[in-house]
Simulated assay, not measured.
Amino acid sequence: MHGPVSSGWLLVALCAATGAYCLLRMRSSVEEQRRAAGGEALMGFGMAAMAVPATAFTPPSWAWPAYAVVFGAAGLHALWTARAGARHLHHLVGAGAMVYMAVAMAASPGHGHGGSGMPLLTGILLLYFTGYVLVTGVRLVPGPAGHAVAAAGGPGGWGDRPELARACRLSMGMAMVAMLLTM
């Protein structure tokens, strides 16, 4: 992505750490949490790879189309799983945003949008992810004592902590906003 080098490395660290935690969440005893964690790990590591500053590593020309294919497939999977519930639609929007950014980067590597202003789709995605970050952040505000443990069905392992899963989703949402702003 185009932007300051220090911000790029911070995004890389944030997204890679989030992807690593999502891999840990894949050990959950709850099948739905394992499935969601797998998609979120892919998103975290994909965002980390996209956020590597261009001054440190310039991806080969085939990398951006490869990102588009991988996240296009992830979007199709999210669309398929959305039949079970609307909560999977967020993964579809996230995968679509990754495809959009990969296509934009392939079309104009190193040049952003050429000063033509913010494209409509970028603005729509920014509004969506900003709203998502605000709603997810509010959901992280602590409730009555013991509420989170009771909601989780008792104390569980690292993969069964809903507040940590929400924190990961929040950090990926914030990273998506930062990445969209640099386009």
Rank of each mutant, 00 (worst) to 15 (best):
A78D: 05
A78Y: 10
A78I: 02
A78F: 04
L79K: 02
W80C: 07
T81N: 11
A82M: 11
R83T: 07
A84Q: 07
A84T: 01
G85W: 12
G85H: 11
G85C: 04
G85F: 11
A86W: 10
R87L: 12
R87H: 15
H88V: 08
L89W: 10
L89T: 15
L89H: 07
L89Y: 11
H90D: 15
H90T: 15
H91M: 09
H91A: 14
H91P: 03
L92W: 13
L92G: 13
V93K: 02
V93C: 01
V93T: 12
G94Y: 00
G94D: 11
G94P: 07
A95I: 05
A95W: 06
A95H: 05
A95F: 10
G96F: 11
A97G: 06
A97L: 11
A97M: 14
A97K: 00
M98W: 05
M98V: 13
V99A: 08
V99H: 10
V99E: 10
V99M: 08
V99C: 13
M101I: 08
M101E: 03
M101D: 06
M101W: 03
M101P: 00
A102L: 05
A102E: 08
A102V: 04
A102W: 02
V103F: 03
V103C: 13
A104W: 01
A104H: 05
A104F: 00
A104P: 01
A104S: 10
M105I: 01
M105K: 10
M105Q: 14
M105H: 11
M105A: 15
A106C: 05
A106H: 14
A106F: 05
A107Q: 14
A107D: 11
A107W: 10
A107F: 07
S108Y: 06
S108H: 12
P109E: 07
P109K: 10
G110W: 09
H111T: 15
H111Q: 13
G112C: 01
G112E: 04
G112Y: 01
G112M: 01
G112P: 02
H113A: 06
H113G: 03
G114F: 01
G114A: 08
G114P: 04
G114K: 02
G114S: 04
G114Q: 02
G114T: 01
G114H: 05
G115Y: 01
